[in-house]
Design a protein around this nucleic acid. Structure first.
Lengths: 400, 400
DNA sequence: GTGGCTTTATTTAGTCCCAAAGTATCTATC
DNA sequence: GATAGATACTTTGGGACTAAATAAAGCCAC
């Protein structure tokens, strides 16, 4: 009769998950990393060794004491599938435990179609079939609010979805655990497992792209808000009578510096032609167009002002910048850096921000990280689907 | 060898704390309230009954089953002392477990004096002496950032304090557990124990007063931020080149609608005379002065805009308004209500706000609530001082 | 080299809390 | 007034995790 039966046996899963995502570690390292006692690690790893899920590797040169013995996962090939849904396509990747992408694809997608959820299911079924028995689960990133990662019901105006039962539908279609989450939050979770989260417990992940978003991680746990809608910084009001926003409000940050707003401004200032995209704006700025650079710097300045407010509210250790718009960060930064600093109280000016690398797979990779991070979920946010992932981790390891 | 030794025996303390703050409850209610199993409640209460800390009261009319037997705390007279430090005085209250204030006093105080901490200690020592053996601890609310409730080192520009060892100093002077926290956060903790926290797990407490502040409670736990500075919404930038703020930045919310800013605006618009306080402004508005009402309504509108941003960022269940400025809320609300709604995304417009009652003791009462809430602290945020409070709760109960 | 010192891992004894199953005592209904 | 159903509480038997003590195995200094 386990103490936390609903959450499954958490420690063994965390150990497996940790070894999978970080590579071989000593028992002492595991204990420190998971904040559990060395005794528990010994107990747990003993069982895992006996079951053949883990094996003892070489010793490690000692640091003035008994040398550590590294433990490594036995199996190879385990992984998860991540999918990012947008208004016109779905990006799908398969990611190994260590975070490496070993296959990625993009599929056209029409979220407005009446059978959109079925189409999404079919599309993913093909990917799932290829990894039979080696798959921990499927993570899905959605541009919208997800009521609970576990239930996976989605409110996504961008896609025209309201109370869409994404989680339930995909679970039925795929027969594997499915975790659904807001797309920006998936990036925050990915940072938790593979990025800044290894060094910091509390951080923000701000994204620049079609919209402006923010993922909030507090003490290692994703903060979702009461209704799964936390981090909607794109709709922080930045002006009293600003431009109309797609959300129905006015003067939202996103209405000022979202992709559409940037394009509109650039057209007005004759930097790019009518109908040209934000890429043209980036190109012009890169080519030395002063007005183009100015448009981006102004956007950066406003972002800095908005993020200063968020930092005052949340007091994070660090802010990570991400998103497809990050490729033009050089130009944003000219406005961002002074503005961010200037609008922070002096005592908060030490708050650092850093720019993570970006590529097109990152959204889908983040979605996969949802699954790969679920062994560490101590808060129960991943619910029964998280438990299923942990079961699969136990079952699948060691079969190779 | 307890499982959570650093936190002391948590369940017995929570039970005692719950019975103290809520009055008699049945075992089943306790189990539901603390989210622990009925079996554990039986075990725990058995021990507490045996030790004479708790006694069985009358039965309660059944609701279609075996009637519940109420359990009540044996002792009476237990309580905590709360102190609120400001730039010119210290308010001190003694609060019984059930939240009732049974003595309150105000003392002049000069935070700039070189021996300010000693003076504070002396001042509190007198209060502590009167409650020998009946005191769980002392809570102190400070207008500034506290690095850790446990350590109690304070950064408070308003008081001219930097890295002031408030916690350490008072502990030495008083010989009882001392918990130090940002003043707004103490109000949030008080709401947790005696107010909105009984119905909601995640909420914001926004304060209108000398400054503008915000306490954040997430899933029943106070969110302090990485460096204890979360909730500084008074310094959210509301304009690019706004008025200078005391914090050194410009255009902060507080520089627009803090008490000093309101007074300045009111003088400029000739509502009140030079040197008159915000009370005069309130009086004028109450008396029907349209310009005075307008000043307050404009402030309300800006507050609404700022809080809309915070709600987008945090997605709370509800927002509670508090603070000495709340007496004029009628006038603020004229601007606040439409602005708050207007600047929220449609999906967030259901977020409700409510106005709590206010009196002068509330700040100090909040500080006392720090102590009275520490039995429930599951996160370890109250540290060793919290453990000491729990020990005292065990020791002091049942002696009467 | 030999005794400290450090770090790692294991063993032991014990605490905390829980699930499941059983008991108690009431209301509702026929 | 039995029987069913609901709600409250207890008992029992573990499982998970821990602290403390112990063992193991290296480094360092003299």
């Amino acid at each position: 009769m386990p103490a936390q039966p609903a959450r499954g046996d958490l420690v063994p899963s965390s150990v497996l998950g940790l070894l999978g995502t970080r590579g071989p570690l000593s028992r002492a390292q595991i204990a420190r990393e998971l904040a559990i006692s060395p005794a528990t690690v010994t107990q747990t790893t003993k069982a895992l060794l006996a079951r053949g899920l883990v094996r003892e590797l070489d010793q490690v040169p000692s640091l003035g004491g008994r040398p550590a013995r590294l433990l490594g996962l036995v199996s190879t090939g385990l992984g998860a599938i991540g999918a990012k849904v947008t208004a016109d396509h779905v990006a799908v990747v398969h990611v190994a435990l260590d975070g490496s992408v070993d296959r990625s694809s993009v599929h056209p997608f029409d979220p407005d179609a009446p059978d959109a959820l079925d189409a999404l299911g079919n599309l993913l079924r093909a990917a799932v079939r290829d990894y039979e028995g080696q798959l921990l689960g499927v993570g899905v990133g959605i541009p919208g609010a997800v009521d609970g990662q576990a239930s996976g019901s989605v409110e996504a105006p961008t896609l025209g979805w309201s109370e869409a039962p994404v989680g339930r539908s995909l679970r039925a279609a795929l027969g594997v655990p499915v975790l659904v989450e807001n797309d920006v939050n998936t990036l925050a979770v990915a940072e938790r497992v593979y990025g800044i989260g290894r060094e910091h417990g509390s951080y923000l992940v701000a994204t620049i792209g079609r919209g402006i978003g923010c993922g909030i991680v507090i003490d290692g746990a994703l903060y979702r808000g009461a209704f799964g809608g936390a981090g909607e910084i794109g709709h922080i009001p930045m002006s009293v009578d600003g431009p109309e926003c797609a959300c129905g409000s006015r003067g939202c940050l996103e209405a000022h510096i979202g992709q559409a707003a940037l394009e509109r401004t650039a057209v007005e200032r004759r930097v790019i032609g009518e109908g040209a995209g934000v890429e043209a704006l980036h190109a012009a700025a890169d080519a030395g167009d002063a007005v183009a650079a100015e448009v981006l710097a102004e956007a950066g300045a406003m972002l800095g002002r908005a993020l200063a407010g968020v930092v005052h509210t949340l007091d994070p250790e660090v802010v990570v910048m991400l998103g497809e718009g990050i490729s033009a960060w050089r130009h944003w930064e000219a406005g961002f850096a002074p503005s961010f600093r200037r609008h922070l109280m002096p005592s908060r000016r030490g708050t650092s921000y850093l720019i993570d690398s970006w590529d097109e797979d990152k959204w889908a990779l983040g979605a996969a990280a949802l699954v790969l991070a679920s062994p560490f979920d101590q808060t129960g946010a991943t619910g029964d689907q998280g438990s299923l992932v942990r079961e699969r981790l136990h079952a699948a390891t060691g079969q190779a």
